[in-house]
Design a protein around this nucleic acid. Structure first.
Lengths: 218, 218
DNA sequence: TAAAAAATTTAAGCATACTTAAAAATTAAT
DNA sequence: ATTAATTTTTAAGTATGCTTAAATTTTTTA
């Protein structure tokens, strides 16, 4: 399994799991920084390997086999993020960038060592679930997007669903961090904005942020 | 810099530094598990990039630029070995195998974090020197091959110059470990064998081992 | 030192993973 | 419901890093 294939499968997985769910070659291509033609090519190859289902002009779908591969890579990615975050002075963006590279060169054996050292964590520092060795995921169905939160309620940050450095910088600066507590002051539904307070700070977030910050009710 | 190029340069470096010093394409090819033809091809490419000097039928030589690249990769390799050995329950062979992969996907930034965490070690668990960020190496000219050691003298293991699992297994089983103390009982010069004692044990080693185990006089 | 053996190089070819450009199909808009 | 715009696919081509086989050069040895 080449790095190109691993990244391709992971991209399908991430699109599938996240809200958007556009897994056509063009969208995958955009995310991987390759041409649509290259993505179509790859889709055919992966279909031949039984990793995805491919029909012309349709969405790409992981097979059960493809899903297991994807979960294995995602597991390594999130274990590395958890490990680097714990060991070193690195930001959420830093750990993501390094994990993107290391994940492809990590044996199952090493992944098991890292997982064991960390006490087999179920979530990474973004709040994303870490699949176990069998590809099983602990889901927290209770988490909701901040955009859907109730006014006057306290919440705990459950997930920061992004890879974007600016977003992480903003979060770090404002105390928006996995497991921190916030209070929802007001929902400006017409403008898709949400006012929250963290400690002594009050912040108004737009929908770019409130849709990727997930929270649990306290 | 591709993985193929990094491994090629590293192979030249290792041959150059170690005793053998055969850096012709065929020998590099054998070590990398590729054909001689592929190695000749690669040699031409690296010469065009000014990383090595190449003349038909001659030994390959790293340029100053090539040497810096090699030292950077060797640094990452040995930092990973040191780090994995400290953090996890892994043998010398295990850490080598994992480091061979991770070294190519490690940013200078991450290498600096690992080095800092370890207190900027100068030697890895094999006793091999770890180049610093500028490619500088702390050499210990005092170390000698066990084959050259004096009878009746105590020594400290300074270096285990090998990548071989069987060798490492043997060492682990017999307490031959970086920084451990041994006593040289007898040199059987005619047969190129050396008898040593470690703790309560006595072992006779042949030249396959006594030439790659380096020691410092106590 | 001349023939035999071994190693290196050249040449031709292949798989992977991309590219651009044109053709075909789908989706959106009027 | 057509037309226009967008997207996807096909086709042709490229760079990398390999392969095998044959030609060439070096090294060994007798």
């Amino acid at each position: 399994m080449s790095v190109a294939i691993e990244n391709f499968i992971k991209a399908i997985y991430n699109n599938d799991v996240h809200d958007i769910k556009n897994t056509k070659p063009g969208n995958i291509a955009k995310q991987l920084g390759i041409s649509s033609a290259a993505a179509t090519d790859m889709a055919k190859k992966l279909a031949a390997k039984q990793l995805i289902k491919y029909q012309k002009y349709q969405e790409l779908q992981l097979t059960e086999k493809g899903m297991q591969y994807a979960l294995n890579i995602v597991r390594k990615h999130r274990l590395w993020e958890s490990f680097l975050y714990k060991m070193f002075d690195m930001s959420l963006h830093d750990i993501h960038r390094e994990a993107e590279l290391l994940e492809h060169q990590t044996s199952d054996f090493l992944a098991a060592q890292i997982s064991s050292y960390l006490g087999h964590p179920k979530f990474d520092p973004h709040g994303d679930p870490i699949p176990n060795e069998d590809g099983q995921i602990t889901t927290k169905d209770t988490s909701i997007a901040l955009a859907e939160a109730k006014e006057g309620q306290n919440y705990t940050i459950a997930r920061l669903m992004s890879d974007d450095k600016d977003f992480f910088d903003f979060c770090a600066l404002n105390g928006i961090k996995y497991r921190n507590t916030i209070a929802v002051i007001k929902q400006f539904d017409k403008n898709n904005m949400t006012q929250i307070s963290i400690g002594t700070n009050t912040i108004v977030l737009n929908e770019n942020f409130t849709k990727i910050i997930y929270v649990d009710e306290n």
